[in-house]
Design a protein around this nucleic acid. Structure first.
Length: 215
DNA sequence: AAGTTTCT
DNA sequence: GAAA
């Protein structure tokens, strides 16, 4: 254990579906450190707007840290061991990132989660992520852990099929979502981020950390 | 294919 | 939300 009580939550957990747990405020006490690490990661592997396989520019800007990074392009979605922009390894995953993912997964019933990649998404106002499934990972037994920072956003939580009804959940700074098991393939997305009335402490963007086991 | 616009 |  790194240190006790780094993470925790005042508000109660919310079970969304089997294997899907919303942990409000779970990372709230560490958001300053998490933002600082995002800045360091972006200094090594800058945020960039990738193209979808269809050739459209994503509204979300992405980078990664860890052993692999998620990439998208004409050739499809891929996890790569090297950043194709810098031609160097992705920045290392900070220990506090690993610990956060580990503790959140354990709380949701997924023991011993050892993510090998963390996708870092930056949502400027207007950016969104249309409904999709996470299908590119080699280990579907491992859950997904998602950490929200900066501006709030409405998260869409759907079911195993695209036509299934969706629940709209506002995710705020420090909130954590975990899904795996029977919910691992559920459709999900993010509605367009609204600009904040007042400038936030860490800039007027939403950031999201997504931890996965790519291989 | 992790988009976008338009119509209903 | 559906359609293109």
């Amino acid at each position: 254990m790194m240190q006790p009580d780094l993470f925790g939550t005042a508000r109660p957990d919310v079970l969304l579906s089997a294997g899907a747990l919303f942990l409000p405020d779970f990372a709230r006490a560490q958001v300053g450190r998490l933002h600082a690490h995002i800045q360091s990661i972006a200094a090594g592997s800058p945020f960039r707007h990738m193209l979808t396989p269809g050739g459209r520019c994503m509204s979300v800007a992405t980078t990664s840290c860890g052993s692999f990074g998620w990439t998208s392009g004409r050739g499809g979605y891929r996890y790569m061991a090297f950043d194709p922009e810098t031609r160097q390894a992705w920045p290392h995953m900070p220990p506090i990132f690993r610990e956060l993912a580990y503790q959140a997964a354990a709380r949701a019933g997924f023991a011993e989660f050892r993510p090998d990649t963390c996708l870092v998404n930056r949502y400027a106002p207007g950016a969104r992520l249309s409904l999709h499934q996470d299908l590119d990972e080699g280990d579907m037994n491992a859950p997904i852990v998602s950490v929200s920072l900066g501006l709030p956003a409405v998260f869409l939580w759907g079911g195993a099929e695209r036509r299934d009804p969706r629940r709209r959940i506002t995710l705020c700074e420090g909130d954590v979502m975990v899904w795996g098991g029977d919910s691992r393939m559920n459709f999900h997305g993010v509605e367009p981020v609204q600009a904040a009335a007042g400038a936030g402490e860490h800039g007027a963007c939403r950031y999201n950390l997504t931890f996965r086991k790519a291989r």
